[in-house]
Amino acid sequence: MEKKLSVMNYEEEGRVKSIEQDLKNKVAGMGIRVGKNLKMITKHPLKGPIVVEVDGSYTSLALSVADRIIMEVKR
């Protein structure tokens, strides 16, 4: 199933399916690229940033950035 990274639930895991073109290089520096496995760790309230686990370490992303990353998640 496909969903935006921004709407993933706590502890949910998935694989990055696509990233909007102009965002690709920005998030690549944080270790996020197509094919990577991510796990949702924290979603801050009031449209705050999210925290995901990638390669065993945590990275935070603005919600607006997470909105533009499409994930493939298991049901």
Binding site: A28, D55, G56
Partner: peptide
């Protein structure tokens, strides 16, 4: 670079 987060370090 942080050896435990090597991929993003190598990117830079």
């Amino acid at each position: 670079i942080d050896a435990s987060k090597i991929e993003r370090g190598l990117y830079l």
